[in-house]
Amino acid sequence: MSDPLHKDQDLRADDGPIEESQKTSETPLLNVSELRSGYGPIEVLKGISLHVNAGEIVTVIGANGAGKTTTLMTVSGCVKIRGGDITFDGRSLTGIPAHEIVKLGMAQSPEGRKIFPRLTVLENLQMGAFTVRDQVRVREDIEKAYHYFPILKDRQKQLGGTLSGGEQQMLAIARALMIRPKLLLLDEPSLGLAPMIVLKIFEVIRELNREGMSVLLVEQNARLALKIANRGYVMETGSITATAPAQELLNDPRIQAAYLGE
């Protein structure tokens, strides 16, 4: 199988981000406005607004505990909306349970991967396609997942819990792809992985985006995230403190000092 991606390490390469101006006329695929949510007595998100246009990779960067994971969990419906609203594909998600949101075409590869440890790799992928009725399509999509991550094919009979961290991350992403999502939410796909594997995963993310999938990426590895993203948001203690095209954030001295270690 030939590597369809560029050999160079600059993941943004030639085709670059889509210009923001081309996009502004459309309604965003995902629109989060003044969103508040949290756990028990703790309010984590204090009224955040962000959006993802169709075809974009948008990243939310920020320190540990800033509320990035809560943002994704609220968008996915696992954490209740306490104020504000989320619309996806023109529909409000307030009051819609997580399992129904999946059917609208949104998938998430969650923090800590959350693969099913005592299901095989193949069964994990089948679970990803739980809402898909057409079994022929499911088989095609499993083959496609193996195309993106060939190692998973070698491991398909193995239990999910026996995979290495990198393989588990690949499985978590592959599992999310099984519904052919319009929007893919990725929570820290680089966490704890060797640089080579991170690179491989980010190449796949970019390839998926080129095929038309929109991506909302949450990352602590800000440099990497901003390199593949069109736009970025900076999150601090439950609020969005900055937003700009990814390239601008990469060049912003304050961002460099706070998140890029320069």
């Binding site: 996915s76 349970p97 997580a98 399992h99 998938a107 969650p110 679970m127 739980f130 809402t131």
Partner: peptide, 8 residues
């Protein structure tokens, strides 16, 4: 939680 995210 993961089961919910699968649409279960």
């Amino acid at each position: 939680v993961a089961a919910q995210l699968m649409g279960i």
